[in-house]
Structure formats: C-alpha cells, structure tokens
Design a protein around this nucleic acid. Structure first.
Lengths: 165, 165
DNA sequence: CCGCCACTGCTACGTTATAACCTGAACGAG
DNA sequence: CTCGTTCAGGTTATAACGTAGCAGTGGCGG
C-alpha cells in the first residue's frame, strides 16, 4: 500500500512512474506522487485548481505554485498531458519507454457530452503530421491533436443524456 | 479604402469576409470588422488583451467582453481560429466556402523561435484523424492540431537568432 | 405604438497561471 | 567542517485570460 487513498490501478501506475523517474535521475517526490495520483484517479480531465482543492485535504498550505510546479514536472517526465482546450490534465497512457527522444503527438478525443477524454495513439495521424511538417521545412518538436465530438458510449444514449456519472 | 489603417491585403480580406457574412445572414459590423482587421494585420497570433489595447486606440470604452464577443462571432463564422496553446487568435486562411457543414481540422505549425504560426491544410492528417475517430466509434465534430517546432526561416538562422522582427 | 431581436456598453467577478523571493535539505569540493 | 551549489518546496502577490449579468439603443415586423 504505497500511498493510501488511491485505487489499486493508480497505485500500480505510481510505482511504475517512480521507477521510470529514478531511471532518469529525477525523483517522484511525495508531493509529485500525490498530484500524479490525483490526476490518475480521476476519470475526467482535472483542472489545476481542482487538484489544488483535493490536494489540500492531505497537504495543508498548498498554493497554486505548489500544484503548477508538480504538474510541470510531470509534464516534463511525460507522465501526464495537458488538454489545452480544457486547461486540464490527464494521465498519459504510454508505457514510459525510455525512448524519450523522438516525440509522439498526443492525441485526444474529447467527448462534449460526458467530458471524458480518451488518449489515442494513431500511427497514421502521426505519420501524416510528420510528413506535413517536413513538407514545409518545419522542424517538428512536439504536437497535440485535440478532437471534439461524442464518444461511443454517449452516442448510444438518448439525446440529452450522457454516459457515466 | 474601406476601413483606414489596415494594409491593402487586410482590407481585401475584410471585404471578402463582409460578403461571406451577408451571404449567411450575419453582419460583420464595424466593431467586428475592426477586430478582424487587427487579427489579420498581425503577423503573429494576437492575444485578446493585445487586441483590446489596440482596439482602444480607435474605440474608446472597449472592455474585455467587447473583444471576446467579437472574437466569438468571428470564430463561429470561421474567419479566425484560436490557437489554444497560446491563448491567441489568428486569421483563417481558407476561402470562406459556404460548405460550412463538414468541418475541417485546423492545423497549426507554431514556431517556438519567432512565434509565428502557419496554418496548413493537410488532407492526409485530416483523413487519418477521421479514420482514427471512427475506429473508436467516436463521432467527430471538430479538431485542432497544434504542432510546435522551428520554422524553416528560423532553422536557417544561427542558433539563438530568430527570423523576422 | 409595441414588442422583439441583435448588438453594444459597462461593471464586476471568476478562473487560470506565473513572478519573485525565501527556507531548508542534500551533497560534493576545498 | 563549512562553503557553495542545486533541487524541492513555501508564501505572497499579481498577471493574464475569460465570463456573468444587466442596461441601453436601434431596426424591423406586427
């Protein structure tokens, strides 16, 4: 039971993340671990101030920079992504392969009904993007794809309803 | 010389935009025209408050909602795009075809050296995206692709320099 | 004349993000 | 050991981005 209060799955991911960090010579401190846990435990994208509120339950004195610094670290480590359209954060689904070198495009499907975000990893999109950039002489560093629409679960519901809580 | 103070090219685009709006039964009012002109005349993405400052020069009493309402209108009309990563706005390059129906993905190449943003229109990326969404049963409504990197002009410069002003 | 609608003015506020400065712990070099 | 350095985090304040809500005005159809 590493950090109590998180689901089994989240705890497992936290352990992986911790390992990945130490392999890279960075540390997943207790604070960063808590923030990462909060992000992973949420089934929706989490806003920085939501995280801050939740963090305060177990970490009195937390302020905006507390959360933002942790989030910056987690972003650098590739453990989370930011969904720009929502100003919110989600866990990264990728195995934390150490091939940190050649960047993949983060791709999100954002459901406007239920608010859930699914990260996908589509090679076709990636390849198309790399080629399009090259065509314009653009040196691609990283990219994000954010698609809005209705997820399969919500599309199956009567209009007006939304899947999940 | 419709609205003075804008470049030839911008004025031409404004005329087109005006026509496109009236064809759709909406109006490009003087205020909206000015805001659109400011966006088009800028060679970098323009933040809402930048626009507000510039707008105030010729339009006293402008407040945040003044600009945001105009921007919302222009976004709805497809005359501008928002670059989420920058919280800033750029003119849309597309001919304002009236096939407003099936949405294209806005695709941006953002240069981290000079700050310029190039909109591209890559069919491959679009197709890959549509297919990826369909594969997950996701009903795609709209999407944006934001790629960061170094543009051709900046890549040709000595490191540390940036192309353009 | 009246009510409706689209547009704008204006005040205030909510939300998101960062600057700047300080403390303390860990650690290697001299 | 003790100094400098680096990294993590605390604390205060403020910048930057965005919206709610209400009031006024002017056109236009009934």
């Amino acid at each position: 039971m590493s950090t109590p209060g998180f689901s089994e799955q989240t705890s497992a991911l936290l352990s992986q993340a911790s390992l990945a960090c130490s392999r890279r010579g960075t540390q997943l401190t207790e604070l960063r671990r808590k923030v990462l846990g909060l992000v992973l435990d949420s089934d929706r994208p989490a806003g920085a101030y939501d995280l801050l509120d939740r963090l305060r339950a177990h970490h009195k004195g937390a302020a905006p920079p507390t959360v933002y610094r942790a989030l910056d670290f987690l972003l650098e480590q590739g453990l989370i992504h930011k969904v720009e359209r929502l100003s919110a954060f989600v866990g990264c689904i990728h195995r934390h392969a150490d091939d940190h070198d050649h960047p993949h495009a983060a791709q999100f499907l954002i459901c406007t009904r239920c608010g859930r975000v699914t990260e996908i990893e589509d090679g076709g999109v990636n390849r198309a993007l790399v080629q399009a950039a090259r065509q314009g002489g653009f040196r691609l560093a990283r990219a994000t794809v954010e698609a809005e629409g209705v997820c399969a679960a919500c599309a199956a519901m009567p209009a007006g309803a939304s899947a999940g809580a």
